[in-house]
């Protein structure tokens, strides 16, 4: 889940404060960044981004006295903390207390995992939209492919990037290129061109196979078909994807039922088709 902090941290070393020793400055910055905070190192003239409602100013202030700060416009809550003599862990705790219940994400509790589209490569073919079963993708009013539901994306699953014939989908947290954003090489393009046909990539159309297997199951086991058999069926069909490292096991386990997969796939394909009809490629 994405939570938006509405405050900033400023490590102040301007007039009325002591400059920090470089190694102490490093230790403080590293500790705060690793806890998920962003901060500016500045003297006078720091800038605040729009939407920020609070600024916490850290510094080794003269006589160990943090100044009283006030925003002349009253729009931003300013507070200063004297950090003289505090180690990085103590400074981080101090910031945590000052933050109070203001929301923010934290490293280790959530991973920003979502597709990032390289529009210099994307041809709007909609294969990713058709492929994704979790409604991550959508189409803009102008008929352009968009990532619309980041939070629906399954962490560590880069499967949609593998079906993109143009190598246009990146996952910056992925381990290797070109999915992680490395430059796309000629060999990458050749390799991806071989996978334009999703059916070939999957060793047969995944959804068709699911339908076939579902029909077979209905005719052969209609009397005894139950949820556990449907689950086994689903896993069998998708095991190939997992074996090839295309879908992590936990994502596989979280896939919906075969019937739901069919429904979603049909809906996604219809959306992709409609988008392509409304906005034909140039």
């Amino acid at each position: 889940m994405s939570l938006s902090p509405d405050f900033s941290l400023l490590l102040y070393e301007g007039r009325g404060s002591q400059p920090l020793d470089p190694e102490r400055r490093f230790a403080l910055c590293a500790a705060l960044l690793d806890r998920g905070y962003s901060l500016s190192r500045a003297g006078l003239g720091a800038r605040l981004a729009p939407g920020q409602k609070a600024l916490i100013v850290l510094g080794e202030f003269d006589r160990g006295q943090a100044p009283d700060l006030e925003d002349a416009d009253g729009a931003i809550a300013l507070s200063a903390c004297d950090i003289t003599g505090l180690d990085p862990a103590a400074v981080t705790d101090l910031v945590e207390r000052r933050r109070g219940d203001r929301p923010m994400n934290q490293p280790g509790l959530w991973k920003p995992w979502f597709p990032v589209i390289d529009y210099s490569r994307c041809t709007n073919c909609m294969q990713c939209l058709s492929f994704c079963l979790f409604d991550v993708y959508g189409v803009s009013k102008e008929g352009k492919l968009q990532v619309q539901n980041n939070d629906n994306c399954k962490t560590n699953c880069p499967a949609c990037s593998r079906v993109c014939p143009e190598v246009a989908i990146m996952f910056p947290k992925y381990s290797s290129g070109p999915i992680n954003g490395e430059p796309v090489s000629d060999s990458d393009i050749k390799r991806e061109k071989m996978k334009v046909d999703i059916s070939a990539l999957l060793g047969g159309d995944l959804y068709a196979r699911l339908r076939e297997r579902s029909d077979e199951a209905k005719s052969r086991f209609s009397q005894e078909r139950d949820a556990s058999k449907a689950l086994a069926e689903r896993k069998k069909c998708l095991a190939k994807l997992m074996a090839e490292g295309m879908i992590p096991a936990d994502v596989l386990a979280s896939l919906p039922s075969p019937d739901e997969i069919q429904r979603r796939a049909a809906a996604a394909a219809a959306r992709a088709e409609a988008a392509l009809a409304d906005a034909p490629l140039p």
Partner: peptide, 20 residues
């Protein structure tokens, strides 16, 4: 002086206005 952020991906994920 410099700006430092915990993670640009995290900021992009929630469309942080600071990026603009």
């Amino acid at each position: 002086p410099f700006e430092s952020v915990a993670d640009l991906c995290e900021m992009s994920a929630r469309r942080d206005p600071r990026l603009a």
